[in-house]
């Protein structure tokens, strides 16, 4: 197990260093997410007031689209100079490589989320931080779940044709529970009289989703990546 953590940390550190050098995916994804927020606010604001509860939907949908973009771009780069096969050649547990890549994407999406939540809070003056722990917990669990399934599909699609269009086609039907739980959990937090029990239930559901699909992804990464 220590070996898996060591390798995962190594891959994560490499991804952070590579990303910090070019910051290409970070800037493009953050800008894309902000433009999503703008577009949605035009759609959901009527006579100055946002439609009741639209804010949580906007946050999560902007997050999902930005995540999908980041996933596609991150693996595109690995494919470009065949680096992914270089990693698969290493004499290590291949699931550890998956874990390292996943953590890199979760970190990236976390940065994007900070910006998205800031803008939504600004535009709609929503009390996101009335219950900060639950809210951050929902976001974190949702991101890990979404990025977990997304990273596996993106890695797997790396060698398939028309992968850019296939990623969302595969990703959204599977991650529907995360989006439902995320949106409704956040809604329960920011509505007039926040319903904490409901929010906790949704958080528990996302954590269950994470547990199931991360183990499944960790387990199937090896057979899916061998041609």
């Amino acid at each position: 197990m220590r070996e898996v953590l060591r390798v995962a940390w190594l891959v994560l550190r490499k991804d952070i260093r590579v990303e910090s050098r070019s910051r290409e995916v970070l800037y493009t994804t953050t800008f894309f997410a902000t433009s999503c927020v703008l577009v949605f606010s035009f759609a959901f604001v009527r006579s100055g007031r946002p439609v009741e509860g639209a804010e949580s939907g906007i946050v999560w949908v902007a997050l999902a689209y930005a995540g999908q973009l980041a996933l596609g771009r991150a693996f595109e780069r690995e494919l470009h100079h065949d680096a992914l096969r270089g990693l698969l050649l290493a004499p290590v547990e291949r699931g550890a490589i998956f874990a390292g890549k996943l953590l890199g994407i979760v970190l990236l999406m976390a940065l994007v989320e900070v910006v998205v939540v800031f803008f939504v809070a600004l535009f709609f003056s929503t009390p996101f931080f009335a219950h900060p722990f639950l809210f951050v917990g929902l976001l974190a669990a949702g991101t890990i779940g979404f990025a977990g399934v997304g990273a596996l599909f993106a890695a797997m699609l790396a060698r398939a044709q028309s992968r850019a269009v296939l990623l969302p086609v595969l990703l959204y039907p599977i991650t529907v529970p995360v989006l439902i739980a995320g949106v409704n959990g956040t809604l329960a937090l920011i509505q007039a009289d926040p319903n904490l029990d409901l929010a906790r239930f949704w958080l528990a559901l996302i954590l269950f989703f994470d547990a199931v699909f991360l183990t499944l992804a960790f387990w199937t990464f090896e057979p899916l990546m061998t041609e």
Partner: peptide, 30 residues
């Protein structure tokens, strides 16, 4: 895999990293 060395046509190097960092990453990975 510990006994295999593979130089692929696309070289499998990270352009954003320096020469030393590339070698160090793969040495630690192995």
């Amino acid at each position: 895999r510990r006994r295999l060395g593979y130089l692929s046509h696309d070289l499998q190097l990270y352009p954003e990293l320096t020469a030393g960092e590339n070698l160090e990453f793969f040495a630690r990975l192995y």
